[in-house]
Design a protein around this nucleic acid. Sequence first.
RNA 1: GCGAGAGUGGCGGAACGGCAGACGCGCCGGACUUAGGAUCCGGUGCCCGAAAGGGCAUGGGGGUUCGACUCCCCCCUCUCGCACCA
Length: 798
Amino acid sequence: MVGYHLGTMRRYEPSAIEPAWVARWEAERLFEASDDPADTRPRFYALDMFPYPSGDLHMGHAEAFSGGDSVARYAAMRGFNVLHPIGWDAFGLPAENAAIKHGVAPKEWTYANIEQQARSFRRMGMSFDWSRRLQTCDPEYYRWTQWLFLKLFERGLAFRKGSPVNWCPKDATVLTNEQVIQGACERCGTPVERRDLTQWFFRITEYAQRLLDDMDELVEWPERVVTMQRNWIGRSEGAEVTFRIDETGDEVRIFTTRPDTLWGVTFFVFAVEHPLVPKLAELGGTWDRVRPLLESVRSTPLTQREDADTKEGVALGVHAVNPVNGERVPCFVAPYVLMEYGTGAIMAVPAHDQRDFEFARQHRVPIRVVIQPEGEAPLDGDAMPEAYAGEGLMTNSGPFDGERTPRSIGTVAAWLREQGRGAPAVTYRLRDWLISRQRYWGAPIPIVHCPDCGEVAVPEDRLPVELPEDVDFTPGGESPLARHPTWTSVPCPRCGGAATRDTDTMDTFVDSSWYFFRYCSPGLEDGAFRPEDVRRWMPVSQYTGGVEHAILHLLYSRFFTKVLFDMGLVDFTEPFPRLMNQGQVIHGGAAMSKSKGNIVEPMPIVERWGADTMRLQMLFAGPFEDDIDWKLIAGDPDKRPGVTSWLGRVFGVVADAVATDAAEPDLLVRLTHRTVRTVTEDMDRFRFHTAISKLMVLSNEMRSALDAGHGARAAAEALVPMLAPLAPFAAEELWRVDLGQAQSVHRSAWPSFDPDLAREEQVVLVVQVDGKVRDRIEVEADVDEDACREVALASENA
RNA sequence: GCGAGAGUGGCGGAACGGCAGACGCGCCGGACUUAGGAUCCGGUGCCCGAAAGGGCAUGGGGGUUCGACUCCCCCCUCUCGCACCA
């Protein structure tokens, strides 16, 4: 029975069916989450990282949302009350650049792009609850971003301090690191300078330990994301030790992870920005040589600061006294010591730290060995080729000679505390979160600066502090808000006197650190969210998005959640216990970019072959978390994609299955049950590509059965719902039209299976002796090892 | 340098320690066609062989096991993070 199948009578025409189902689903309000307290279904919060509206959707969105939408639809079919919202992360610099470049207002540009993306999402058939849609640039949203700022301000978690920025002297404007190209302004080519501004910070460092601890117990994330966060927080254990400057009596604290090497200190180094440096250089008579160093570092753009040479540095002409042995060692100032980490000054042990070693060689400072490796020739400070950072026995270390390191680290730290010369200490690499941006298109910081009262919070009932629209975007000068003629002037909320608004706006990461709470109480006018709504929906059941947000966005959102917990507004501390990262979509081995001319866009594919094809191409390409090289999986763009042909065959096979009432062969019945079992396992683990391949096997077997004159109706009734999360339009069409179901497939139950029928019947046991195949025996699939051995030994034809 | 992950056909990729390469793309041959970018049938890891059949194969080398892509040790390569963090 070859040649034309009955199935060719049922044509698959995605462009004809897909838009009609979009309209139907919306009319039926199929994807709105239920807040009805009488709804007893367990809840499921399927969250996708919300997009930034720069133009239309790109392939990365198509990949991420194909996966996220499958998760949401599958959960609904498994009986969950699903919340699957969408919104836009809509503030940010690109809108301002568009204003400068094309003369279009940031607001117009942003909303036009959002509308475009919203249309594309609808066309793709994403199962979003559109009634909860939000945009972070809406005053009704950023009003609550500002409110959250004030809550942090009240708790002392928002504060101002001086901090350097990249500054272009010609354009008189602050530049982001990305706007600095090889030390020069990207727009005018002028060399960039550093400038200190007083800026707002969030005190995330106060939460460093909790951010670390909660990861161990409360989140199930990809290992690499956990590792990245852990490294970013960068906890180090060691000791704090106080040195005294001999010439002035100043006490200077340092942090070290190696207190066991204290007896090997031969010099002492200050960061260039350390406040004692000018005074000490003056006293030491070295100011003439120190000042040029300070100035050269000052004029180095922030982006190039870390390229500095480890060996660079200048002696201060003063000495520090080592508290453990009273020795006087020379002090230096050097760029390799960072003001931001630790205390901004270090003890230097060249024998056991490579950077100290190189510096010592350059500046002819003695190298003294205080850790000797065991069972090797003793190290000689004058002859060693590099620092020794390994284990060994302490030596030349007074009371601790012979102690074994690294165990001795704790011993020495405890001793320091007893002696009052220091104490065990912990330091983090994490720094406070700089949220000030000298930009227009962001949420204004709701603070008024009063000459008499200082920093005054804008009262909550006067939020939002709205962005003015009549601003000047021409480049140059201060930020548009600072230049505005009237917006900045405002009476002080406390004393009523003349005062000025803060003209900084907030980092857009602030906007995106709480949007998932807002989705729980859309449009709420008297609060950021209702605690009972958040209690019902959160924490998020499954978060889907790019690994590029592995550090900042996730860390900041976790921080906000912990602050809200401390405020008593939420009853959990981790917002996203489960996370999955989609891979990147690349093209020809490289990221897609305009300059490479290798951009492929999803919407033309959707228009030509259908949204289901686009989804299946993405999901079938490989594991969801792996990168996809479009060039390798897509083939000729004018040829019908393989997955489209498959959907066509599914249409044929389902139509044929409906048209016959012949009995189904046992083989097909068993395959159907087995497929339900294994596809369910795949969907539970987001193994979309293997789920699809198993559905292909089932549809192929159905074809064979039908061609042989058998039936396949029950198989079709299992196949179509399993297809629903992956190719929602095709499945809906087949379910409601061909299978004649009244209700949407997306609100029907996920198919179940009979464990007896779903069992693998038999497996072939290959008996090998010394690598040679001796026998092949059919055994029941679920026999245990002992039974196997018995059968094998019994049958062995040796 | 430190950390994480990965090496399987021409390609994307499958494979609770049990017939490696499922499923698909591509390619080859055929059918139907004015045509094929549509559809259908068959073949397709490599080598020897007309065939039957045999040999070799999961980055390399060891080990555990009746049996290893899978578990253990060493090495090589690649990708991705972080990178003067005291």
